[in-house]
């Protein structure tokens, strides 16, 4: 393995926390979607790091399914966002507050 497994895991954790940070601090729906994609990619990196470390292909197979699921989720999520956008006319999700008290 070219770099120790620790370095790959630290990269994955850093990417994950950056993605989670983006998800929690941004109010624009598009940026929240993109942050979710970063988190998914960080998870894939961790899986592949372990697959390489243990010589086991199960990590790669799970990554394949994660990518497929991310695609499905992006499609449906963006469809929901488009419908919401027609209502609130802005990307700021704080404006979607009709169901609040």
């Amino acid at each position: 393995m070219i770099v120790p497994i620790q370095h790959i895991l630290i990269l994955a954790v850093a990417l994950f926390s950056i993605g989670a940070l983006g998800f929690l601090t941004r109010k624009s729906a598009i940026h929240m979607f993109l942050s979710v994609e970063i988190m998914l990619n960080a998870g894939n990196l961790a899986f592949l790091g372990f697959a390489r470390q243990l010589g086991d292909l199960q990590g790669q197979i799970f990554t394949l399914f994660t990518i497929a699921i991310a695609a499905a989720e992006a499609a449906v999520g963006l469809a929901i966002f488009i419908v919401l956008f027609r209502r609130i006319k802005t990307v700021n999700v704080d404006r979607a507050n009709i169901l609040r008290w």
């Binding site: 990196l45 592949l48 390489r52």
Partner: peptide, 19 residues
């Protein structure tokens, strides 16, 4: 590119094609 270096060429290619 990192996935390529981790001996997962297929996942790397799929990442580019799909993502």
């Amino acid at each position: 590119v990192i996935f390529f270096q981790l001996d997962a060429p297929f996942i790397a290619a799929i990442q580019i094609v799909v993502y």
